[in-house]
Design a protein around this nucleic acid. Structure first.
Lengths: 147, 147
DNA sequence: TATTGTTATACTCTATAACTATA
DNA sequence: TATAGTTATAGAGTATAACAATA
């Protein structure tokens, strides 16, 4: 079995519905207002940084603006995000993390980091670093050529 | 940035909705009867081997029996799968790939393999093998502790 | 009584369309 | 006229419930 074929099988399992819903559930469990649908929005905002617009956020998480707007609204309702007027454009909204939102990001992030650190525990630092680099490249490559 | 954190970010991107739908679309494009929802069922059957029951297949792809039954029906309608009476249990159905189904599996598989081979082209064989092994372990680890 | 497969129904999540306000 | 954001509607996909047949 070739390495690429073994990777293909592994990715197939990773992308199965129950794999991702289970992973999302384990990351967001017990955090009020966070679930498998709102988590990517919160996480995306943390990745982009405070002050981005709804449209920018939607593009980053791969959802339509309308859906993103609803998720943002839910997260605002739970006190994890905040909407502010946008300085440059009165039509736009600047979305920001609240303190609670930032804490929620930290909780989910450390949960996932802990899981992965455990799974990478058998590798020495150089190997782990190498793996991360290749994984980043593979993910970027799989994402880039999607039309 | 730690390796586990870099992996966490990469996995986050990989699990975004548009990443997987885009990948599935690129794999199944042009193959009649195959889409992002039926592909995992076909692929799962190829992984398990001919003759498994609907319930077994459902468990392998992480979907409810009812949904799996409908997808199997669609794939049968497109000539990619076949339902046969199960030898041991008259209640059960043995699901099998047709010749066309086998060809469809080969097409999608070789497409994904080619994508990955391209992305792993910079690695020497030992490195690629090592990456595949670690990836398999990470995916298995992320899946095992769900629930 | 429990289980397999299937079908009917309800629910979740997303996209499209329509609307208001601003550029 | 075009774009940002939001809300209303429709569509896609899944789970739950209910059924008939067999164990």
């Amino acid at each position: 079995m070739t390495p690429e074929h073994r990777c293909a099988d592994a990715l197939g399992l990773l992308l199965l519905r129950d794999t991702r819903t289970g992973l999302h559930a384990s990351l967001t469990g017990g955090i009020d207002g966070l679930d498998a649908t709102t988590y990517p929005v919160l996480s995306g905002l943390a990745r982009l940084g405070d002050g981005v617009t709804t449209t920018e956020l939607a593009s980053a998480v791969g959802l339509d603006r309308s859906v993103t707007s609803r998720h943002v609204g839910a997260l605002v309702g739970h006190g994890l995000l905040r909407r502010r007027p946008h300085g440059d454009d009165a039509r736009a909204v600047a979305v920001e993390l609240t303190a609670a939102g930032r804490a929620a990001v930290e909780r989910t992030r450390s949960r996932l980091d802990a899981r992965l650190a455990d799974l990478l525990a058998g590798l020495d630092p150089a190997e782990a670093d190498r793996f991360a680099t290749v994984l980043e490249g593979v993910v970027a490559g799989l994402r880039s050529s999607r039309s």
